[in-house]
Amino acid sequence: MRQRPTIREHLLRGNAASHPDCRATAMTSHSVLGDKVRVYRRANSSLWQCSTYLYGKEWRVSSKTDSLALAKEFAEDWYLELRGKSRIGQLKMERTFADSAG
């Protein structure tokens, strides 16, 4: 009797969403600004999230919208704001305790 493929095998084949244990966690993802920013929606949320890898760190934020078009606009603005803050030395590279608590 043949065993069901593992989650890892599905991930390696690029079809994790077809595995019964992964269907709920598969995310829809879109690229913005030529792959500089990724807009995605988690399986348990209707809101779009944004992420980018900038200066050796992954940055993430919620767009706080369920509209893909608005989320893409937000992602562009957010990314350009991050780059601008970095250029003038205002980009905080580490999260402080006050940031976490507040």
Score class of each variant (00 low, 15 high):
S67L: 00
Y40H: 15
L47K: 07
L82K: 12
R13D: 12
D77A: 14
K92F: 11
S46T: 11
E76V: 09
T28Q: 09
R4D: 13
R23P: 00
W78M: 11
W48S: 04
P20I: 03
V32H: 04
D21G: 11
T6V: 06
R42K: 13
D66E: 14
A26T: 02
S46C: 08
L11G: 00
N44T: 08
D99F: 12
D66Y: 06
L54W: 11
G56S: 09
R8A: 10
D21E: 15
S100C: 09
K57E: 10
W59R: 14
K85D: 15
P5R: 05
Y53H: 15
K85P: 07
R83L: 14
H30K: 09
E76N: 09
D77V: 11
T25M: 04
D21W: 06
S29W: 01
L70I: 08
V61E: 13
D99K: 11
D77Y: 06
R38H: 15
K92S: 15
Q90V: 10
L70W: 10
N15V: 15
V32R: 03
E58H: 12
L70P: 03
E81Q: 11
R42S: 05
L82G: 10
E9Y: 07
R42A: 06
K92H: 14
A24I: 06
T65K: 05
K36M: 08
V61K: 12
G56A: 05
N44A: 10
L68C: 03
A26D: 03
E81V: 03
S29T: 13
L47H: 08
S63F: 00
T25W: 02
S62F: 04
N44I: 02
I88A: 06
L33D: 03
E81T: 10
D77N: 14
L82N: 06
A17R: 14
S29C: 13
Y53P: 04
P20R: 08
C50A: 12
L11H: 07
A17W: 10
R23Q: 07
W78V: 07
V61D: 12
R38I: 15
R8L: 05
E76M: 07
H30R: 11
I88E: 15
R13Y: 02
P20K: 04
T52P: 02
R38M: 15
